[in-house]
Amino acid sequence: NKFNKELGWATWEIFNLPNLNGVQVKAFIDSLRDDPSQSANLLAEAKKLNDAQA
């Protein structure tokens, strides 16, 4: 379904953000699993944090 596809894509993108540490990645992935409907918002937050830590 739509959420599974978005969840998978967001998970892959978060895993590939180079400036996040393992704890941050795990926290974002756990949040995605808790509420897949928020995948776009969580991915945006992860990208912002990644950019801030560059």
Score class of each variant (00 low, 15 high):
A10L: 03
S39H: 12
L20S: 00
D34T: 11
S31G: 06
K26F: 04
N41R: 13
N50Y: 03
E45Q: 11
W12D: 10
G8K: 14
N19P: 00
A52F: 13
A10C: 04
L49R: 02
V23I: 14
L20M: 01
S37L: 06
D35I: 03
G8N: 13
E45F: 08
D51M: 13
K2W: 14
L7M: 11
L20H: 00
N41D: 05
P18H: 07
E45V: 03
D30I: 14
V25P: 00
F15I: 15
F28P: 00
L32W: 05
A10D: 06
E13S: 06
S39Q: 08
P36T: 03
V23K: 12
S39V: 15
G8Y: 15
A10H: 09
D30Y: 04
V23Q: 04
L42N: 01
K26W: 11
P36Y: 04
K48A: 09
S37G: 08
W12P: 03
T11P: 05
K2I: 14
N50P: 00
D30E: 12
N16G: 06
L43A: 03
W9S: 12
G22T: 12
N16R: 07
L43W: 05
L20Y: 00
S31W: 13
D30T: 10
A54W: 08
V25N: 00
G8R: 13
Q24D: 04
Q53L: 08
N41Q: 13
Q38T: 05
L42T: 09
F3V: 09
K26G: 04
A27Q: 13
T11Q: 14
L20C: 01
P18V: 09
N50I: 03
V23C: 07
Q24V: 02
N41A: 12
Q53N: 05
Q53M: 14
P36E: 02
N1C: 13
K2C: 12
N19S: 04
A54H: 09
A46F: 05
E13N: 04
T11A: 15
N41C: 06
A10N: 02
K26L: 10
L32N: 00
D51A: 13
N4G: 09
I29F: 03
F3A: 05
E6F: 10
A52L: 12
K5N: 15
A40F: 10
K5H: 14
T11H: 06
K2H: 14
S37C: 05
Q38C: 06
D51C: 06
Q38E: 05
A10W: 13
K47Y: 10
L43F: 07
N41H: 12
L42E: 00
K47H: 05
I14F: 06
Q24K: 00
N1F: 04
K47A: 04
G22Q: 14
D35K: 08
K2D: 14
D34S: 09
V23Y: 14
V25S: 04
Q38G: 06
N4W: 12
K2M: 13
N4F: 10
K26E: 07
W9H: 07
A10P: 06
L7D: 08
V23P: 12
P18I: 07
E13C: 09
P36N: 03
N50T: 01
K5E: 14
G8H: 15
N21I: 04
A54R: 04
A27P: 01
N16I: 12
Q24N: 01
I14P: 02
D30V: 09
D34Q: 14
K47N: 05
D34Y: 09
K47Q: 11
W12T: 10
L43P: 00
A46D: 00
W9Q: 15
E13A: 11
K48W: 07
A46H: 01
F3Y: 14
A46V: 02
F28N: 00
I29G: 01
A52Y: 11
A54V: 06
Q24H: 03
N21C: 06
N21M: 07
D34G: 10
R33M: 15
A27S: 12
G8S: 14
L17G: 00
G8M: 15
K47S: 04
I14A: 03
A40D: 09
T11I: 15
F3I: 11
G8L: 15
V23T: 10
Q53H: 05
I14G: 02
L42G: 01
F28L: 06
P18F: 05
I29Q: 02
D51K: 09
S37P: 01
Q24T: 04
A52S: 11
A40G: 08
Q53D: 02
I29S: 02
N1P: 09
E45S: 06
L32S: 01
F15D: 03
W12G: 07
D34A: 15
A44G: 05
L20P: 00
L20I: 02
E13K: 10
N50L: 01
N19I: 01
F15E: 11
P18D: 03
N19C: 06
K47M: 10
A54G: 12
E13D: 03
D35P: 01
A10S: 05
R33F: 13
D51W: 08
D30R: 09
Q24G: 03
Q38W: 03
A27V: 10
A44L: 11
K5P: 13
A44H: 11
P18W: 05
S37E: 05
K5D: 15
E6P: 06
W9F: 11
L42K: 07
N21L: 12
I29D: 02
N4I: 11
N16P: 01
I29H: 02
N41L: 13
Q38P: 01
S37R: 06
K5F: 10
E13I: 15
A54C: 06
D35V: 04
G8F: 15
D35G: 02
K2P: 11
I14C: 04
K47L: 10
Q38A: 04
L32Q: 01
N16D: 05
D34C: 04
L20A: 00
S37K: 07
N4P: 04
V23A: 13
S39D: 02
A10R: 04
R33I: 13
D35C: 05
